[in-house]
Design a binder for these strands. Structure first.
Length: 432
DNA sequence: TCTGGGGTCCTAGGACCC
DNA sequence: TCTGGGGTCCTAGGACCC
């Protein structure tokens, strides 16, 4: 048995904790560069703001709706997330943190009324953290996901499902006939693992609801689609195919990619950006105690600027030996950049992806005949500690551009709230 | 003017091996 | 006329997730 705990409109809810005046108002949180809406309050959803809708289009479409937009503050959301997870963990013996706002919890061996227990945890998260959650409970992870969707819909859109399923939906507690009724009231596109493409193919076959998918024959699904969809179908039938992954292994690739605040044309600007992205990726790599064997770098123009000449190119470079050294990784990334750069284009985005990751203590010994640059492990450690203590960017490579220089490629974030919970100077102050 | 970022898994097909 | 069989590894691309 699994539970899925999921924060409602998570980023928006985090912002509201520290600015209660935003309650009951249409709010959106924007992606990097203040580009698209990535979290919407119920009021914003009701106004028709779509997921990932560009903010400038929302402003044009609904100029008088009084929608408040905020730049994403991932420091705040990450900290709020870990607080929420620490309470959610009390629901059962094991937990898998699935995303910043979701956790699967094993209910194996938990006795008593699971629905009530889940409701108490939900209330505690609301009271202690201030974030509203929904909980789904079912025999498999896929069904628990769907139960969570139903819990939220029943709460947000009264009449869509029986009212007693609001906030906490325990599919395992429903009589079979009621379960079928709920599944047949749910579109198949809501099922975890069925994206737009597969959904369209299934509709082509005349299927419509989650119940239709649950009635498919696994062998046929495997033959005509894939083992992935077969697992989804079996999970919909109550047969667990996915286990709780309590301790996910180290990442297999680590990326840092960004759109620019404005387009750039010069190699110098791209070099600063690529150098910085490589360093950021390298920091993440050192955090998980790894080394990278290859560096992938890409640059591209904006496909949205239809009038511009388009160009996109990428390259993957192998390292002579795996490393987590920012200077070596940034150097390699910049070498790749010089190989793919073309003059005369307005570049909108670039990125660095570290590949072929291995554990740092797995090292191939070799004779050091042509020293290609020593791994500055101690220097990296010192830099990481300084940046941790005094803030990101305290120590960095000069090739990423010095403060005070142009750095015209950095992203826009004009609507950002303070780091209320992770920075002393941003601590909210209560006045009597 | 203005359009996000970071991942995972699976599969088909090519290269290569004996 | 007729040209084997069995296997591994790697990669690019597609699909999905939040």
């Amino acid at each position: 048995m699994f539970a899925l705990v999921d924060g409602n409109n998570f980023y928006v809810s985090c912002e509201r904790v520290f600015r209660p005046a935003l309650l009951h108002r249409p709010i959106v949180v924007l992606s990097n560069n203040d580009g698209c809406a990535i979290s919407r309050s119920n009021e914003a959803k009701a106004l028709g703001v779509r997921m990932a809708e560009p903010w400038f289009e929302v402003e044009r479409r609904l100029p008088d709706a009084g929608i408040v937009a905020l730049s994403a503050n991932f420091c705040l959301y990450g900290d709020m997330s870990s607080r929420m997870m620490s309470i959610a963990a009390g629901l059962g013996p094991g937990m898998e943190t699935y995303s910043i706002d979701e956790a699967f919890i094993s209910l194996a061996g938990v006795r008593g009324d699971l629905t009530r227990r889940a409701d108490l945890v939900r209330e505690r998260i609301l009271q202690w953290i201030g974030v509203p959650c929904g909980v789904g409970i079912a025999a498999t992870k896929t069904l628990a996901k769907l139960a969570n969707h139903i819990a939220k819909s029943a709460h947000r859109k009264p009449g869509s499902y029986p009212a007693e399923l609001a906030r906490v939906c325990n599919l395992a507690a429903l009589p079979p006939a009621d379960l079928d009724a709920v599944l047949s009231a749910t579109d198949l596109g809501e099922i975890w693992g069925i994206g737009p493409r597969i959904a369209a193919q299934l509709r082509e076959e005349g299927l419509r609801t989650a119940l239709d998918v649950a009635h498919m024959d696994p062998a046929t699904v495997r033959r005509r689609w894939s083992i992935v969809l077969e697992r989804t179908v079996r999970e919909m039938q109550g047969q667990p195919c996915m286990v709780l992954d309590e301790a996910p292994g180290p990442k297999k690739e680590i990326a840092c990619t960004r759109s620019f605040g404005q387009t750039v044309t010069r190699l110098q600007d791209l070099q600063e950006a690529v150098s910085e992205f490589a360093c950021r990726a390298a920091e993440k790599l050192r955090k998980q105690g790894g080394r990278a064997g290859q560096v992938h770098v890409f640059i591209q123009t904006s496909p949205f600027r239809r009038g511009d000449r388009q160009y996109g190119q990428s390259i993957t470079l192998p390292l002579r030996r795996p490393t987590a050294d920012s200077t070596l990784l940034a150097g390699m990334a910049c070498r790749g950049l010089r190989a793919i750069y073309q003059q005369g284009f307005k570049f909108a985005k670039a990125g660095v992806i570290l590949l072929d990751l291995a554990d740092a203590d797995m090292e191939q010994g070799e004779l050091d005949l042509d020293d290609p640059g020593r791994d500055r492990g101690q220097l990296m450690l010192a830099a990481d500690r300084l940046n941790e203590r005094f803030g990101r960017g305290t120590v960095k490579l000069a090739s990423a551009g010095l403060a005070g220089d142009a750095r015209n490629w950095t992203m826009r974030q004009n609507l950002r709230t303070p780091d209320y919970t992770t920075r002393w100077t941003d601590l909210p102050i209560a006045r009597a």
